[in-house]
Amino acid sequence: MHTLALSEFRANASAMLDLVEQGERVRILRHGRPVADLVPVGAAPETVPRLPRWKMPIEPLRLARPDGRTGAQLIVDERERGA
Rank of each mutant, 00 (worst) to 15 (best):
R62L: 11
R65V: 09
D77T: 08
M16D: 04
Q73F: 03
G23K: 09
G23D: 05
I75G: 09
R79L: 15
R50E: 11
G68Y: 10
P40G: 13
A44L: 03
Q73R: 12
R65I: 00
H31E: 02
V35S: 08
A83S: 09
S14V: 14
A11D: 06
A36Q: 15
H31V: 13
H31P: 12
M16E: 11
V26R: 12
P57Y: 00
Q73D: 13
S7E: 01
V35K: 09
R33D: 02
L17G: 06
V48Q: 03
R30K: 15
W54D: 14
D18E: 15
N12Q: 02
P45A: 03
A36I: 05
E21G: 08
E24Y: 11
P52A: 06
E21A: 06
L4F: 06
R69S: 04
A15R: 09
N12C: 11
R27M: 06
A36T: 11
R81V: 00
W54T: 10
F9L: 00
D77V: 07
V48T: 14
R25E: 12
E24T: 00
R50V: 01
E59Y: 14
R33V: 01
L19F: 01
A83L: 02
R79Y: 05
A72T: 04
L61W: 13
Q73K: 14
P60K: 13
V48W: 02
H31D: 12
T3M: 14
W54A: 15
A15D: 03
L61Q: 09
N12D: 12
A64G: 06
R69D: 01
V41C: 13
I28Q: 03
P40N: 13
E78C: 12
E78V: 07
T47E: 13
R30P: 11
R30A: 05
L51P: 00
A44C: 14
A43D: 00
A43H: 13
R27T: 15
L6I: 11
A83R: 14
A44S: 05
E78A: 03
F9K: 01
V39H: 00
P49H: 15
L4E: 01
G42H: 08
A83V: 08
P52C: 09
V41I: 08
R65Q: 14
E80D: 02
V39T: 11
V39L: 13
Q73G: 02
L29M: 08
Q22K: 14
K55E: 12
R25C: 02
K55A: 14
A72Y: 04
L19W: 04
E59W: 11
T3Q: 08
G82W: 10
R62A: 13
R27V: 12
R25H: 12
P60C: 02
L74D: 06
V20L: 11
E46Y: 05
L63R: 15
P52F: 12
R65T: 12
R81Q: 09
L74I: 09
V76K: 10
S14I: 05
L63A: 07
D77F: 03
E24F: 00
A64I: 02
R30E: 02
A5V: 01
E80C: 09
V35W: 01
S7F: 09
A83F: 07
A72M: 07
R30Q: 10
V48P: 11
L4I: 05
D67I: 08
R27K: 08
L6C: 07
A43G: 09
R30W: 10
M56K: 01
V48M: 07
L17A: 13
G71N: 08
R27P: 00
P40H: 04
R10E: 11
D67Q: 01
P60I: 00
M56L: 00
